[in-house]
Design a protein around this nucleic acid. Structure first.
Lengths: 278, 278
DNA sequence: CCCTGGCCATAACAAATCATTATGGCAGAC
DNA sequence: GTCTGCCATAATGATTTGTTATGGCCAGGG
């Protein structure tokens, strides 16, 4: 049998007592009635005594339930207090350097959520060339950089591998000879990956130095391109796994400026970035 | 993202900090190191900041971690306090009337566990005839009765259906004509169920008024019998589903003497009985 | 200098848990 | 009587969790 109470169950219990009914508590918690019913039964199992009188009118706490209520409320309030204390609203500034492909993905959503959570803080996202990124990092305008490992301005604190996949523009024949390819025009690690991977004749159908340009070219049916899965429009997925050679993974890493060690806001952004890939 | 902390995660965190190492904390918690590692990462996700510095030597709390520790310890101690208060060691006496088949099953183990948990309480299990049971119930020597619904001395507070299965004694031929059957000699609801279910010639090979007698007869290869699955030795299972007709379910129910409403010990025993069937 | 051992992180899979939909029973209102 | 609102249960599917099996990293000792 469980040795600890569970805070979620305590919240369910308190809500049910306040609501006087499991069904109503369920809706205020955004759950279904059977789910809550099961949770309360589980809690009763942990405590070892019935906590609620059930009737057709609703529920009322038993003797044991009444004894539990004050503890439950205290634990719940301590829980939110602990959270607001340790992850209290942050202030300051954090510059984040991102690979453009990452900036386009749901990562920006994550960062925007974070910024909304901390109205006193400013978040800035930068997508620039490797050299500019290094400069911004050295000058302290950017504290975190998430990019391909060789391009990082400092040692990676952690890394993560992501696959590349082929995106096939509308109406493009993947067996065409030569194969029309849409490329990033920057010196980018996977531009070379694409070129080295292709084992048959190909030609550059279009080049762009920005992801939106590449995506537009794909939508226009100009050719095929290598993307991270996050940026792949499902309609452009390549369904025949053998039509094009398998692309290598890219290794992304996060560099953090050493002077920012222990800064809560930078902590929070780093944790959010990491969590976005879990 | 989760809105509450989780007590289990707080315990993991505190243990890790105290142990100075995730691995050691894992062994003291009886878990594996990766499991704990994941839990701590999840907790960091909820808080939004790193809580531990990881190194090859072990872990030490970060600034945020140090802030969290006192909250975590307070919540943990409140949690155990709430449990010991609401499910504190009980005293008193509780008589439980059981169908013999139930007394033989793991249910006795459950009740023994409960008794060990509450050294100041005495538990008594009674397996007697329906009439004696009613008498004991009326006189207050038995507060809870778990039996077939029609045999209960009071209205059932809850019920549960259990299947009956055929047990085939060692070496018994289930196609024999007439089929040798081992029966309870008491007037028992499923004695009649067996008789009514059998759709071909049969004979009473052995009768006993106790479950151990029936089991002994089965082991001796005297015939087949109907049992609850809990009491079925796997070696006696009937493997051919069509060899014998399907037996009906039995409906068990729990009656509780009305005068015991709210008594903590009786509460605890009732909850334990119910939980044993969940 | 290269092992070796302790530490943590990750991956992949298996097991357990959880929430949902779909029911049914029960009691009071109409 | 039939409704209506309540709770409980069953069954299924999704999610979560824990496990084993690895690999990388750093420090200490040969």
């Amino acid at each position: 049998m469980a040795r600890d109470l569970e805070i979620i169950l305590l919240r369910s219990f308190v809500t049910a007592v306040r609501a006087g009914s499991i069904s109503r508590a369920a809706t205020t918690l955004g759950q279904t009635q059977p789910a809550l019913s099961q949770q309360l039964r589980k809690l009763e199992g942990v405590v070892g005594r019935p906590l609620l009188h059930r009737s057709a009118a609703g529920v009322t706490p038993t003797r044991a339930g009444e004894e539990l209520i004050p503890y439950a409320e205290r634990i719940l309030s301590l829980s939110v207090e602990a959270l607001t204390e340790t992850s209290r609203v942050l202030t300051g500034h954090c510059g984040v350097g991102l690979l453009e492909d990452l900036a386009a993905s749901r990562l920006s959503q994550t960062l925007a959520d974070l910024a909304r959570l901390h109205p006193g803080a400013t978040l800035e996202v930068l997508c620039v060339s490797r050299a500019d990124m290094r400069e911004a990092y050295d000058e302290g305008r950017v504290q975190l950089v998430l990019d391909e490992v060789p391009d990082l301005p400092g040692p990676p604190r952690w890394t993560i591998r992501r696959p590349l996949v082929w995106a096939v523009g509308a109406g493009v024949d993947v067996t065409a000879d030569p194969l029309p390819v849409v490329l990033f025009s920057n010196e980018c690690a996977w531009r070379t990956a694409v070129i080295e991977t292709l084992d048959r004749p190909w030609r550059v159908a279009f080049e762009s130095n920005s992801l939106v340009g590449v995506l537009a070219a794909l939508r226009a049916g100009l050719g095929v391109a290598a993307l991270m899965p996050e940026n792949l429009d499902p309609s452009m997925a390549c369904h025949d796994p053998d039509a094009l050679p398998k692309l290598p993974d890219v290794e992304l890493g996060l560099a953090r400026h050493p002077r920012t060690e222990g800064e809560p806001l930078i902590d929070a952004v780093e944790t959010a970035l990491r969590r976005a890939f879990s």
